[in-house]
Design a protein around this nucleic acid. Sequence first.
DNA 1: GCCAACGTTGGC
DNA 2: GCCAACGTTGGC
Length: 153
Amino acid sequence: MNYWLMKSEPDEFSIDDLQLSKDQKTAWQGIRNYQARNFLRDQVKQNDLVFFYHSSCKVPAIVGLVEVSQAATVDMSAFDINSTYFDKKSDIANPKWIQVELHFMEKFNRPISLKQLKADPRLTNMVLVAKGARLSVQPVSAEEFEHIMFLSR
DNA sequence: GCCAACGTTGGC
DNA sequence: GCCAACGTTGGC
């Protein structure tokens, strides 16, 4: 079992949008960064647990918990010319981009803000709080996971 | 393979 | 909206 943190801009797709989605599931498409892609392709497995993070918004924060309901499949949006995620350099015979499927689990009563995460001495090694961290899919340690779950209660 | 120019992310 | 910190592109 691995733990992850995935970022989403709530104006684009929020935890509420996920909760309201059909079967409370969504295809996590549009990852166009190689490091994040490699995590999705090689390490994110079914039943892994994922913190859902809201970025580029008023209060950046971990807002809930989701699970991986399906591991890596080809992100077909890269071949859809009408999609904002269209990538003309991706060859359908040799797909470049990967998606997973996420399933809603819970929305935290107490979201944990970036400010709070940064101030917590037990979370100083989190990828999220590292200087210049822009990864939209990033690993979370078991210790970090347990502590953040504790903070959310 | 170097690296300057350009594009993107995301907090503030 | 600004801009620092990254990532990517493409000429050489």
